[in-house]
Simulated assay, not measured.
Amino acid sequence: MDNIHINKSKTIAFTGHRHINGDNIAPLREELTHTIHQQYLNGYTTYIVGGAVGFDLLAAEIVLELQQEFTDIQLLCAVPYAGHHIYFRNESMQRYIHIADKATANIILSTHYYDDCSLRRNDYMIEHCSLLIAYYGQSSRSGTGYTVRRAEANNIPIINLYKQSKP
């Protein structure tokens, strides 16, 4: 794992569903871009994504786009284990590889897969952020649900963009 200092008070983590309805992608991209931009203006400069398909990749791409305008933005990819992306479909794998290449740091939490490694990655993100941006439709048995509950238990504010988009 990379040894990097993270200022929790200036760090946002992202969590969200892996599947986003095609009709929701454009409005979600617009709302997420606006939200990240606003939070940057509020002093948040470090953003952690978990490297999963769906919302994570979308959030990472937007952070990288905003990094062109705000050069002090840092993107950290916290992934559960080395090579986790090899099971992605080709398009998502290529997107992930591009993001990982452009990220400020890639934090690989384990050299191998093990039970609950994704939950441990989610714990890492919650331990290192002071705000969570989610795309969460109340599915309690998901990793996103777990992460939202952990944020709530740790009194971390949550901006949930799901309720602002079409279900």
Results as ranks from 00 to 15, higher is better:
1 M>E: 09
6 I>G: 05
7 N>W: 05
7 N>I: 14
8 K>L: 09
11 T>L: 03
14 F>M: 04
17 H>E: 08
18 R>F: 08
31 E>L: 15
32 L>N: 06
35 T>H: 01
37 H>I: 06
39 Q>F: 09
40 Y>V: 00
47 Y>H: 12
50 G>N: 12
60 A>N: 05
65 E>Q: 11
68 Q>W: 00
70 F>N: 15
70 F>D: 00
76 L>M: 12
78 A>F: 07
82 A>M: 12
83 G>I: 11
86 I>W: 04
87 Y>N: 12
88 F>A: 08
88 F>V: 07
88 F>Q: 06
92 S>V: 02
92 S>Y: 13
96 Y>L: 05
96 Y>M: 06
100 A>I: 04
100 A>T: 02
101 D>R: 08
104 T>M: 02
104 T>P: 01
105 A>E: 08
107 I>Q: 02
110 S>K: 13
114 Y>F: 14
114 Y>M: 10
115 D>K: 13
122 N>I: 06
122 N>E: 08
128 H>I: 13
129 C>K: 01
131 L>Y: 11
132 L>Q: 09
132 L>R: 05
141 R>T: 15
141 R>P: 00
141 R>I: 09
146 Y>V: 10
147 T>Q: 09
148 V>N: 03
148 V>T: 01
151 A>W: 04
151 A>G: 03
157 P>T: 07
160 N>G: 08
164 Q>P: 00
164 Q>R: 15
166 K>F: 09
166 K>L: 10
167 P>R: 15
